[in-house]
Design a protein around this nucleic acid. Structure first.
Lengths: 332, 332
DNA sequence: TTGTATGCGTTATCAA
DNA sequence: TTGATAACGCATACAA
């Protein structure tokens, strides 16, 4: 490993001069500076990140933590984050798994964006209390060192539920996320509100897990209880896909007997037959905003919580109850 | 920030005793050790990663570099890597983009797995020469500090091409990856070999880019030149999807007029209508093996290059030429 | 068993 | 404009 000490020796100057030259300080003559730079290049000098981080007490690296690497949501989200980070002179690293948590308190990274169920809120608050800067995308958390950039879950769930009602459906299954999921709870509240206000709606909650398996299990129940067209709101697209997979093994048809809407508008929904109705939002914008907020906190700026707006995407996976009933009759 | 110095002060011992105690050395009495541990906990002590890395000259972090975060291939691959890394006491971070390259030479990470076109081979060789440990998944590179874990591209392309031939196709379009892509070049060689051996086969190369847009552009050309059933080998599934999307806007039908096979067996292909024929391999195993190799190199072990085996997945996107011709006739 | 002292590679303060 | 020197937090050889 070649260090500034080696350069200093070869150049016949002190290490501080080398440091200045390498960092482009104007305190050093152009002549010595260029000599030093030449030698640095010749020796293939590369600064040591650990030493720099130790001394400067910052790494210029931000970390984003994901529950797992498998999610279909992440591509654009991470791209949005990276773009902003890089533009602001930060690197972005993606981490997953419990043992990676340490990077935050150990100050390997300057701040973290959390979309990760393996962090408890207590854990995050502890880190925040010790002065870690954090942006959360998957929970509400109140702390001066924590900022929230959340999906407008209530608006999304309201849009989805109202869409089902508008299409004349009276029996609605809700497939939720895992117990304790913030997104799921928010969405459930909105569903309840809309359904209760509508009056003559029967709605049945099925606890899911935001994974395909949850959708499959929910489908199982819906199939068993089937006695006429039913509407289903899967609280994310991945479960909706699992749901469809299980339905495809039966005589029931999505968009005819089962009317299905998801949440997230992941790319795969474009290729489903029929096209899945779902809730859309800009993943890229979400990521970009999260990074912006984190960088602002790091700069000591005061920032408010942010919200990501959502829209309804209609798809043939949901059709009118009347039509559906007729078709079913016809079919029977 | 609380450091071992603070603990030492509070415990009335020296910093070295604290360091020993924290690292579970047997050199220190259980009594003092537990006292120190208690104080450490009380003060919320967390070791500083930069200092530890600087001193120990290793970070216990491995990095995987991806061309971008959007790829559909990555979920299981990264999971496989993470599993092995964590089991061996390493953390895994995922990086993308040119500015993240520095993490390798700056020794923020102990080693790197490369699946990233933004690295040139010269760059990687330079790092290897300076003693960075590297595993490449997307090119051949010969250096004591570099190991290869490559897909069996030739086998995959051979399987794909032979399948098209077996199904009676005589006109085959090949949609390649971007200029200079190792995977693409390997696959092309195999295609050439198989096609030339078969004799009466017309094959047309279309330069692609491994992205949807490349598939769309290729479809454009195939549509324009269409004069009867044609077979198409897109060198990855993503291009095959773009291809399908463009075809869907015409009267042509995949599996009837256009016979399409991809490469990668990404999840989305399960949901395509008709199901895309493609080449499959275990992404999880690929990732796991890459991590294993890297960790072995780091441990100073001598390792040989590895190969990931592939299999053919038949799908209704490719049907027999005879049938197809008949159907086309019927259709006309 | 514990303490002293040194160095990892940087940055940055203060003198020269 | 440059140099000597002191940190940053930790691990460890060596002394006590």
């Amino acid at each position: 490993m070649v260090s500034i000490k080696d350069i200093a020796k070869k150049a016949g100057v002190s290490i501080s001069t080398v440091s200045y030259a390498l960092n482009g300080s104007s305190k050093v003559t152009d002549e010595t500076s260029s000599k030093i730079l030449a030698i640095a290049k010749e020796l293939n000098y590369v600064p040591n990140a650990a030493a720099r981080t130790l001394k400067k007490r910052e790494s210029r690296i931000l970390g984003v933590f994901l529950t797992d690497f498998k999610g279909d949501v992440y591509g654009d989200l991470l791209d949005g984050m990276k773009e902003v980070c890089n533009a602001q002179g930060y690197d972005l690293i993606v981490c997953s798994g419990k043992r990676s948590h340490r990077m935050l308190p150990e100050q390997m990274i300057d701040g973290a964006i959390i979309l990760d169920q393996t962090f408890t809120s207590e854990e995050l608050l502890t880190y925040a209390e010790r002065n870690s800067k954090i942006v959360v995308l998957d929970r509400e958390l109140d702390h001066p060192n924590i900022n929230q950039v959340l999906l407008d879950n209530k608006a999304g769930a309201t849009l989805a539920t109202e869409f089902l009602l508008e299409m004349g459906h009276k029996k609605i299954y809700i497939v939720s996320g895992p117990e304790g999921s913030f997104d799921s709870n928010q969405r459930m509240k909105a569903v309840r509100m809309v359904a209760d206000r509508a009056g003559d709606v029967e709605w049945i909650e099925i606890v899911g897990n935001f994974k395909k398996s949850g959708g499959e299990r929910a489908a199982e129940q819906v199939i068993n209880e089937y006695n006429g067209p039913a509407a289903v709101f899967c609280m994310n697209d991945e479960m909706a896909i699992g749901f469809c997979n299980r339905i495809a093994e039966t005589d029931l048809k999505v968009g005819e007997h089962i009317h299905l809407i998801g949440f997230d508008n992941i790319e795969l929904t474009n290729y489903m037959q029929p096209r899945l109705a779902t809730i859309n939002y800009s993943k890229r914008k979400w990521g970009a905003l999260a990074s912006e907020q984190l960088i602002k906190i790091l700069a000591g700026e005061q920032v408010d919580h942010e919200r990501i707006y959502v829209t309804l995407i209609k798809g043939e996976s949901v059709r009118k109850y009347a039509d559906a009933a007729k078709r079913t009759e016809h079919h029977a």
